[in-house]
Design a binder for these strands. Structure first.
Lengths: 231, 231
DNA sequence: CTGGATCCCTCACGATACTG
DNA sequence: CAGTATCGTGAGGGATCCAG
């Protein structure tokens, strides 16, 4: 009997949802599949700390509950990919919202924290404020880790499309040093200071960096999440 | 060291969110606090299967991360209540959305499934479709379990307010038998059939029951969540 | 009575090694 | 490439006990 089927014993939609995607690692698997189908080893790569046995269990459970689907590729490839079903895809906005909520108590990355290109792509989707993008048309290319990780964001009148890879002729190239992008997004670092301190290098009009921080933003947490409570 | 602090080792908002509210039972505690402050024993009552030690741990963890706050009542009451902080309250729409997503693979309740009045109240908030309520003004009183559990919903031009308790002069009283309300919400039972079969008893205009099913609705899951996959 | 703490058992999790 | 096998640890779960 592979599946745990630990239940909460409640007749409640939230409890049911947590029985489906509430297990440890489950939502991270869903997140990784949001950007497209992936192989078993791809998932292992973007989830470095997941034990293989757990990944196997999660994939089976998510498949049984109709969140993901396993698809066998042609015999030439001799492989299997996992992809979200339509039902699973409808977690998209929940995952993004929860990611934004969590980003508000995110502190600076530890040296060995994993940071994949998928995370970078999703962070832009997560923090995009469409109400600030009405009538805006601009293309950004981002270069993380000294150009080792490149992605781009196409802002097109209230919508955004983010993908991995370079861009032929971007309006602006942004190259954050270390966690500078995160500080830029959460408002801890102003665009001006980012440039003058050298924490962010750009190609293009500095005004477009200011626009960037309005288009992509993590609102501050209402209370200090590190607050010490006096008992 | 009480707190587990199991981390995912990812620099990612979602991973951070799951470190905060991703532990088993955590989001159910948040859900129960969404409708107002509660005491330790109130939480135990609405979460019958939670071990006390786990409830204690979760409350401490959620407090440390700034999601909830413990407030000592006046000495006359000699008690403590737990309530959401502002940061915790901003999980509201995520919890509702996740609840709606999960409700779509909810099957009929098992005999010993817990069903509290809080769950009933939240199920109406969850399933409310504000786009269907523009210009609508109507008050419903719901009586579950043969009148043992009573709540009411005040629909007021695109907004709804749901609370426990009875109502002086509701426009309609709905008294579902067994899981009839759930079937009504997910479309498995039509208003007409609900009345003719006696699965739902009402006081008021039958047309208002039809309105009710438009105001409160669980969309069907895109694929059969109980689907058997052929391997 | 409220608000826990403590004990003990089981199983999910996690690390490592191995296989069709 | 896509998992299984094995095994140690600790979180989850349930009952009971304790302090204000």
């Amino acid at each position: 009997m592979p599946t745990s089927a630990r239940t909460y014993g409640q007749f409640c939609g939230l409890a049911r949802a947590l029985e489906i995607v509430g297990e440890r690692w489950s939502l991270l698997v869903v997140r990784d599949l949001m950007l497209g189908p992936k192989r078993f080893n791809d998932l292992q790569a973007t989830l470095p700390r997941i034990p293989v046995s757990i990944l196997t269990s999660r994939l089976n459970e998510l498949e049984e509950s109709g969140v993901i689907r396993r698809r066998v590729l042609s015999q030439l490839d001799a492989g299997v990919v996992y992809e979200l079903t339509e039902y699973g895809s409808e977690l998209d906005h929940i995952v993004l919202d929860l990611g934004l909520w969590g980003a508000r108590s995110l502190s600076d990355p530890k040296p060995d924290d994993a940071f994949s290109i998928d995370t970078a792509v999703l962070s832009l989707y997560t923090t995009f404020r469409e109400e600030m993008a009405a009538g805006v048309h601009i293309n950004y290319e981002l270069q993380y880790l000294g150009g080792e990780m490149v992605l781009h964001a196409l802002v097109d009148d209230g919508a955004v499309k983010v993908s991995a890879g370079s861009l032929p002729s971007p309006d602006m190239v942004i190259e954050p040093q270390g966690p500078a992008m995160f500080e830029l997004l959460n408002g801890g670092l102003s665009p001006q200071e980012a440039l003058s301190s050298g924490k962010v290098r750009i190609e293009g009009d500095p005004a477009d960096l200011e626009l960037f921080t309005r288009l992509f933003h993590i609102p501050p947490a209402p209370e200090a999440p590190t607050g010490l409570t006096i008992h």
